[in-house]
Amino acid sequence: MKNNMIILLLIASFSTTFLADQTDRVAALLQLGQAHELGKLCSNNLELSILGDEKTVSKAVAESQLNTFFSTNKPVAVKIIHRMDSNPSLIFAVAQLKTSGGNFRVSYSIKITNGNQEMTELRIETEKGP
């Protein structure tokens, strides 16, 4: 019964992922801890910052580092707390990521060029208290 619930949740999550806009798609993939799928959305040179370790990396390196992050911080919930899409060539969002290892603030930028959308920046920071 529990496995069936998990499967239904995953199917529902993936269904909404493909129907939602790119901002929501990234948030859904964060909640699922899907480093591989997030890697597919990245530009060839992604500005990646995970807990202060900031660098420009390839898609493969981004995927590997996200896998490492998700292995110690199992995602529980994601909530988009800010989004900006008034610029026709740039989307920016900030999300709150709750994990088994604590709460994080995730911000990401998606550049739109000739109809193609690629994530150009991803930052994961420890969430500061009120």
Rank of each mutant, 00 (worst) to 15 (best):
123 R>M: 12
118 E>I: 00
75 P>C: 08
6 I>V: 14
126 T>S: 04
102 G>F: 04
73 N>E: 03
85 D>S: 11
123 R>S: 12
63 E>H: 01
43 S>W: 01
64 S>P: 00
22 Q>C: 05
41 L>M: 13
1 M>K: 10
99 T>D: 03
130 P>C: 03
65 Q>G: 00
85 D>P: 01
14 F>Q: 08
117 Q>D: 04
79 K>F: 04
83 R>K: 15
63 E>Y: 03
66 L>E: 00
78 V>I: 13
42 C>R: 03
45 N>G: 04
42 C>G: 03
9 L>G: 09
129 G>S: 14
117 Q>P: 00
91 I>K: 15
74 K>S: 11
110 I>L: 14
117 Q>H: 06
117 Q>E: 14
86 S>F: 03
103 N>M: 05
13 S>M: 15
130 P>S: 09
74 K>V: 09
48 L>C: 12
122 L>W: 06
111 K>L: 07
61 V>T: 07
42 C>I: 02
10 L>A: 13
98 K>R: 07
103 N>V: 07
83 R>Y: 12
89 S>C: 12
92 F>Y: 14
12 A>C: 15
20 A>C: 11
99 T>W: 09
12 A>K: 15
29 L>H: 09
4 N>M: 07
99 T>Y: 11
27 A>T: 11
40 K>W: 03
48 L>A: 12
94 V>F: 06
12 A>E: 13
130 P>R: 07
36 H>S: 11
89 S>M: 15
4 N>P: 00
32 L>C: 10
94 V>I: 15
23 T>P: 02
115 G>M: 05
54 E>H: 09
72 T>F: 07
82 H>P: 00
61 V>D: 05
86 S>L: 08
125 E>R: 02
46 L>C: 08
18 F>C: 00
76 V>L: 15
78 V>R: 08
106 V>L: 02
114 N>M: 05
120 T>C: 10
112 I>H: 02
108 Y>E: 06
3 N>A: 12
105 R>Y: 02
104 F>M: 06
4 N>R: 09
69 F>A: 11
32 L>E: 10
38 L>S: 04
